[in-house]
Design a protein around this nucleic acid. Sequence first.
DNA 1: TATCCCTGTTAACATCCCGTTTACGGAATG
DNA 2: CATTCCGTAAACGGGATGTTAACAGGGATA
Lengths: 234, 234
Amino acid sequence: MSRARILYVEDDEGLGFVTRDNLEINGFEVVHLDSGRVALQAIEAGELHYDLCLLDVMLPGVDGFTLARKIRERDQDIPILFLTAKSLEEDRLQGLRLGADDYITKPFSIEELLLRVEVFLRRNRVRPAALAFDPRHIGHYVFDAEQLQLTNRQANTARRLTRREAELLQLLSGRRETVLERAEILERIWGENDYFLGRSLDVFVSRLRKYLRADPRIKIENIHGVGFTLTVAE
Amino acid sequence: MSRARILYVEDDEGLGFVTRDNLEINGFEVVHLDSGRVALQAIEAGELHYDLCLLDVMLPGVDGFTLARKIRERDQDIPILFLTAKSLEEDRLQGLRLGADDYITKPFSIEELLLRVEVFLRRNRVRPAALAFDPRHIGHYVFDAEQLQLTNRQANTARRLTRREAELLQLLSGRRETVLERAEILERIWGENDYFLGRSLDVFVSRLRKYLRADPRIKIENIHGVGFTLTVAE
DNA sequence: TATCCCTGTTAACATCCCGTTTACGGAATG
DNA sequence: CATTCCGTAAACGGGATGTTAACAGGGATA
């Protein structure tokens, strides 16, 4: 696997620089943005993909919570860590409800930060695509990745998916409305990327389309030469 | 779906009682031990399998760190949360190095505790407050795990099971409708996992199917490459 | 001690399943 | 209009599973 990419949003210039530097020394690829607004744009542009988000809560303008919410809209699986000066319980709770995965209270030591980040990425790598335990709604289907089950709520029927099918649907449905590049899908699910696996991916996409055909609002669109996007029309 | 099992080590009687109570109300199965020594024995006996460990750091005799180290020797993945009165960084770091996953600083609110516990269990893919099935009624059979007896209420006949058969049936029927992975079954019943034990499991599943064949609503389904699911149709 | 069950494991073989690959036609691109 | 990319059905092959039977060893029994 290539180096893990971290989105780091922090307005304190000094701290931001030091932290970024330390993360990079330890082998991470860091994109450091120094304002909530810029980060919001970057997220909404939706071009880049990260393995982990590190968000300062207190940002001028757009705060960390808002960012987290936006990130979750686009990616329901990516780990989010908050950095917060306040150790106020109310803040911690709000973050956890928003789907944050952990908190680091300022001031923190670099060593602590690294330990937490590594714990996180390690856990994420061990259990690649099977994190979601909340059944996920896709049109009038309900998809339970853990149970490898796809239920048609309308017809009240269920279908068992194979592991690969579930992994792929998990990835697609966790990032709907955004373009998932072929290379990324192949890296994440197959762990490598060659011509034949690419054809395999096409076959799986075709199968998923068939399984989801009962709801015409659901589309898995191909972007020629780039990748796929799952959308659910209103 | 089984309830998540939490090992909770806490010497403060009052706090321990309240916390345990709250966890149980919220659907967790809690084993509360009130001293480090007792916990150490329990861990070294290695009989029980937990989904999460909640350890007070300050314990008379054997402290939380020592426990964590022992637990990590046996299980690399199980989430460990520390409860600590001190928010000293040195303590936090030591805990993280030992493989702790998080800290909760006393005093904590029950809501915070629950949120954190749930976040961690989610990562570990255990369903927290899921309802457990009564393992004793399976279709028109009645299963007594203690007596190793399986009674067919319709035909009014009974069959004696062997211990392994009973263990497997209890696991399957207590978690019906959910995918039980081969690895987990083998870990829980055999304590280890190799090719031959896997074949052994297949043999036992086959036997159970035969014993339960009289009720066609009962199915032990295989999910190829993943595990088994016991279902009882309406 | 020899013998007999009882139980869990191993062996053997048939069958099934699923990820991959092939094949071919259509679509997109420039 | 040439070339590459994609959609999908079908075939393939290797590994996973189902099932029956043989086997081994331990504890009870005589």
